[in-house]
Structure formats: structure tokens, C-alpha cells
Nucleic acid binder design. Structure first.
Length: 237
DNA sequence: AAAAGATACAACCGCCTAAAA
DNA sequence: GTTTTAGGCGGTTGTATCTTT
């Protein structure tokens, strides 16, 4: 009973992929597209399990991968998204075209973590490390600055759509979205920054977390800054 | 120049959920 | 309804490469 396994574990290769294996995988997916990883290894003539093929393709072979160093903008966006989402690497990767969750996770652990710690910021909580407050700037809003390099100002927003007369059905759709984040990055915010009034009543992350009384709550000061912001409608709470 | 230590990242592991048998 | 696996995810490890001593 149950599904048969996709491969015999004893007869699958492990470890680093060879160029030949890569080539087989690429050719197969080019010809047949991504699909059933379960049947792919056999069909492509690979002695690998489907899971391994999927990982190799997604993290390394996909043609739309960016590779190369992360830009300052990407750094900043990762930090902001991490502050909002935590270790949800796949969600973070979804906001960085051409980057994979694995790549971002590695980058976070090897670069950004250290960068934050050196700034006196706890990489998990995004709050000042104990006894480090004097080393960093604390803005009047209550948000921390990273030696004036990074802005962790966070709020939640719905994806931007062209403003148009809202029909009742559209309004219903909009308000039913749950904590959907704006598809805006620091590289695209110049044209897609969403104001708090785009979809009616929205609240910032602080409100969402029940921290309305916090100094960090800036619901009333969200009008026109071209930084990444997130909003969620009250209906979605 | 060699050894030791630090860093970067590809790949694996284990867990969870949904789907197939 | 139950069992088993695929697919997806985050955490961790192994190892090649780089830097420091």
C-alpha cells in the first residue's frame, strides 16, 4: 500500500554533481520542462533521486539565476524582509528575482549576520544587542539604524495595482488578501511605492503585531517615502 | 612556503504537508 | 481511512578556497 518510491536509495549518486549530470538534467528540462521530479531521474538517465535533481536545478542550473555578488539594495531588502518574515527564506527569495532561498540563506549566515552583529544589532530580533545601544543610533521613531547605512523601517502593504474605480467585487478581493506584501523593492520603489490610502484602511506592521502604542508605529507618517513598506488591511487581521 | 584558521557555498538531512495508491 | 511518498522548506554539514600567521 502507498506510493512506490521514485528511486532505489542504494543505487543513487550523492555528493557533487558532475558536468555530465548537469548537462543531462539541463537537456532534459529544456526538452520536457520542469514537472514530475519523481520520474525525472529515470527519464533523464540520471542516477540521482528526484529531490536531488530538483535542488540542483533550482539552486544552480536554472537559467534565470543571477549569480554573482549581492548588491547593496539586495542586502538592504533581505534585512528588511528578514525583519518582517524571519527565516522564511523561500518567501524572501520570492521577492528577489534571480536569487534562490538557499543562496539567500547562505548569504545571510555568512555575511549579513556578521554585518548586523558588528553594528550591534541582533540578527534574529533586529533589535539592539544588550549593552550595545550606545554604539548605534536609535531614531526617535524607535527603529534602529545601522550606522546610518540601513533603514529597517517596516510596514505591510498589498501589491500595487493600477488605481481604478473599485467595483464591489474588486473591493472584496482586495480586502480578503491576507498580509500580502507589496511587490516592491528598493530598486523598484521609485515607481511602485504604495500609499496607505491605496486600498482604504491599512495598518503598519506595529499595528499588526499589536504594538500601536510603540514609538515605532508610524501609521500616520507613511505618505510619500520611497522606501519599502508593507501594509495589511484591517479585514485581514 | 607551509600550516592553521576562517570563509563561502553546494549539497544533504530531517521535518511537515499534500497527494497518491 | 490508512499508509507511504513526493515536494517543499529550513537547518546543518562537508569541503574547496582564501587569508593569516
Amino acid at each position: 500500500m502507498g506510493r512506490p518510491p521514485c528511486c532505489e536509495k542504494a543505487h543513487t549518486n550523492k555528493g557533487a554533481w558532475t558536468k555530465e549530470e548537469d548537462q543531462r538534467l539541463i537537456s532534459y528540462i529544456k526538452a520536457n520542462g520542469e514537472g514530475c521530479w519523481r520520474s525525472l531521474p529515470k527519464a533523464a538517465g540520471l542516477l540521482r533521486c528526484g529531490k536531488s535533481c530538483r535542488l540542483r536545478w533550482i539552486n544552480y542550473l536554472r537559467p534565470d539565476l543571477k549569480r554573482g555578488n549581492f548588491t547593496e539594495e539586495e542586502d538592504e531588502l533581505i534585512i528588511k524582509l528578514h525583519g518582517l518574515l524571519g527565516n522564511k527564506w523561500s518567501l524572501i527569495a520570492g521577492r528577489l528575482p534571480g536569487r534562490t532561498d538557499n543562496e539567500i540563506k547562505n548569504y545571510w549566515n555568512t555575511h549579513i549576520k556578521r554585518k548586523l552583529i558588528s553594528c550591534g544589532i541582533d540578527p534574529q530580533t533586529h533589535r539592539p544587542l544588550v549593552g550595545e545601544k550606545q554604539q548605534i543610533g536609535i531614531r526617535a521613531t524607535g527603529f534602529t539604524t545601522y550606522d546610518n547605512e540601513l533603514n529597517l523601517d517596516l510596514s505591510i502593504s498589498l501589491p500595487y495595482v493600477q488605481p481604478q474605480p473599485a467595483s464591489p467585487s474588486i473591493q472584496a478581493k482586495i480586502t480578503s488578501s491576507t498580509l500580502s506584501m507589496a511587490a516592491t523593492t528598493t530598486t523598484t520603489t521609485t515607481t511602485t511605492t504604495t500609499s496607505a490610502t491605496t486600498y482604504g484602511q491599512s495598518v503598519c506592521l506595529c499595528c499588526h503585531l499589536g504594538l500601536q502604542t510603540s514609538e515605532a508605529c508610524k501609521c500616520n507618517a507613511i505618505q510619500s517615502q520611497s522606501v519599502l513598506r508593507y501594509y495589511a488591511t484591517l479585514d485581514s487581521m
